[in-house]
Every structure is written in C-alpha cells, then in structure tokens.
Nucleic acid binder design. Structure first.
Lengths: 206, 206
DNA sequence: GTCTATAACCAGATAGAC
DNA sequence: GTCTATCTGGTTATAGAC
C-alpha cells in the first residue's frame, strides 16, 4: 500500500462520498431515473466537478457496482476464513449466507439496480476491466461452492452450475423484496428468511 | 358486443397494430429506452397520429400491459374450463401451467418489461381502472389456487399467500430467463422446465 | 385523422474564469 | 479542481395545413 499525500487523501474521500451517493441513488431510483444533477446536489459539488472525477454517468454507475462487488468479495472472504469451509457439507450454508447477505443489502437500500438491458451501460461495464475481474472472481468462488453442494446432494445435481449461479445473482435484485418491504407487513428478517427458503426449498417447501 | 361501423373497425385495427409494436418494443428495450419516434416508425404512422390514439407514452405502455393481462386472463380461463380444476389436488399444477406460460411469453419476446420503480409510469398505471381491474382479477384467481394448493400441502403452508403470488409474478419477468437464452446453450423448453422446477422445488431439488 | 414541421423541455456534457 | 453559465442532442408533445 503506497503512502498517499494529504491532497490525494482529500480527493479519495471526495470520490468515496460521490460513490456513496451514486450507490444510494441507484438503489432508490435506478440508473435511468438518476440524474447527474441530482448526484451533484446530493454530494454538494458542482456537476462539472463530477466530470473531473468520472468521465460519464455510466462510469459513475460502474464505480458503484465495483464497490458492491468488493463488499461481496469481502463477505465471501470472511466465510472462507471459517475452517469449516473445507467441508463440502457446509457449502450450501455458505451459499445461503451469501444470498441472505445480498438480500439484506438490498433491503437496506444499498443495492444499485441496473436495468438489465440498458445498452450504453452494459457496453461500458463489459469493457471495464476492474468490474469484470471482480465479477469473475465472485463467480469462481460461488461456482466452487455450488459444485461442492451438488456433490453432496445439497443442491440439485441436474441443474447446470450457471443456472444456479444466475438464479442466486438474480435474487440479489429480486423485486419481490421491494414489494414485501413496501407492504409494511413484515420485518426485514422475516422477508429475508422467507425468500431464502423459497429460493432453496421452493414454493412447495421442504 | 355492439356492432361497429367500417370506419371504427379500421381504427381498431390500427390501434391493435400500435399496441403490438409497443408490446414488442417494450419487451426488447424496456420503457425508458423505447422512444415514441421509434413506435411511430415501427407502426408506419406519423408521431402526431399516435397522440390522437394515446395521450402519452405512459398510456401506450398501459395499453400493452392491459393486453398482456387479457391474454393471461384468457389463459387462466382455459384452465378453469378444465373440469379437474374443481379438485384442489390439481391447483398447484394450474399454477405451474401459468408460470410456464408466462415464461414462454417472455422467451418469445412478448413480455413488456416495465422498470418496477418508474414514478410517472407507475403513477399512471395505478390510476388506470382497466389495468387495475384486470390485475385484481388475476390476483384473485391465482390467490384461490394458491390457497387450495396450500390446503392439500402442495405449497408451503407457512408462506403468506401474497409472498407466493408476488414470487410467481416476479418469475414472469425474471432476468435469469434472458441470461440463459442469451447463453445459447439451452432450448426454450429446457429453460422453462428448469426454472419452473427451481421456482416450485427450489435449488435443492426434490 | 393523418401528415410535416416545430415548439418546449430536460438530460448529459463542456468552456472558461477563478 | 471547483465553480457558473452554456452548449448540444434527443425526447415528449403540439400547431396547423390537408
């Protein structure tokens, strides 16, 4: 870790503030509805200053996604540190823990929601090395757990690994969470627990 | 059914063509990315003519959603016509049939995708009586099947009805479908069958 | 009702002084 | 680097002739 000048630290802090605002606004309104003016107002800087830090609106969103992936990798790293991790019998519990965590992040209003099919944003993300590297790393770690869980019969062996992986990713931004939260009838923990159950055990139940 | 003049029929046909285009474009690109110019060009009419039929872009989307709900109600009606429907033991099969059907519609590129949290669109939909009436009717019919299925233990009795209903609605626009389709590794029937299974039996499998 | 042309507006992005 | 002020492009919506 290189030492940084005081000036650089100030800049770093400002960028962090920008990414935090972007992350929250993306979670609240989504990419299209979020405006750069809004971000600038929220951070408390002029719009032109934002463009000194980030080249485009898409770059802002990418920075927020990278931060989320870093948080995810940190969370996965904690699970890996647990010595039980070596036992395939616990792999499915690790996956459930990841699913629960992503749902909690979403309920806390900290999960950016990116329209799956926005062309300019997707194109920019697919060319962003930092983003792709992290996405790949998450995929590999989850993929290993999925294979372990399948090998001991804790997950359906007839499902391709990528089907399970996509499903887990999708549950991190499942609109059902928001609907149940908006209904106001359930505690956050109830929602997470019900949806984790339906994800792994299905609507039929165990 | 009131008889219609020839002129009215012509208009009806044109409106149908407009709604079909809107439906397809919404499925392809979503509400925000779809432009009114595009719709006009696709239908082959002037943009101003569109505004004679529909008051706003939101009204266009609402018309497409209403058509989808009508198709859904027709599909549900066919299931209800089956005499076995009276037997609660078959309720879960009816629900699976509805889930499969909505996934097939999505795979066929005929399911409009409306960003869940667009304010202007949501506000307009929530004031559209035709839309709300149909949504209510679908909900009531599915709700009865869900309760029947729970009563015979075919669905998890511990889950509130609305949790199951929201989950079924959400699976109709699950991004996993699009991802698997885009991967090109699976036939449409495979995708539908795998996702129906994970929805009802979970990732763990039966 | 349909068309061409245009108004009105708003978002993303930039120029130039400090 | 940050600000104020402005440009540019694209979108919704409408005027007015036919």
């Amino acid at each position: 870790m290189a030492k940084k000048s005081f000036r650089e630290q100030i800049l770093q802090v400002r960028e962090d503030a920008i990414v935090s605002s972007v992350n929250r606004l993306l979670a609240e309104k989504g990419f299209e509805a979020m405006t750069v003016d809004e971000v600038a107002a929220d951070v408390g800087v002029a719009k032109a200053s934002l463009y000194k830090h980030f080249a485009s609106k898409e770059a802002l969103a990418a920075a927020a996604m990278i931060r989320v992936l870093d948080r995810t990798l940190a969370m996965i790293g904690e699970l890996e540190a647990d010595p039980r991790n070596a036992d395939p019998a616990h792999a499915v519990e690790q996956l459930k823990a990841v699913a629960r965590w992503t749902m909690q992040v979403q309920l806390a209003g900290e999960m950016p929601s990116l329209p799956a099919q926005n062309s300019t944003l997707r194109a920019e993300l697919m060319e962003n090395r930092s983003y792709l590297d992290r996405l790949m790393e998450v995929s590999e770690k989850l993929g290993r757990w999925i294979e372990s869980a399948q090998s001991v019969g804790a997950l359906d062996k007839s499902l391709p690994v990528e089907v399970i992986m996509y499903t887990l990713f999708a549950r991190a931004c499942d609109p059902v969470l928001g609907l149940l939260k908006a209904s106001g009838q359930y505690q956050p923990e109830q929602i997470v627990s019900m949806l984790t159950k339906t994800c792994f055990e299905g609507l039929r139940g165990s």
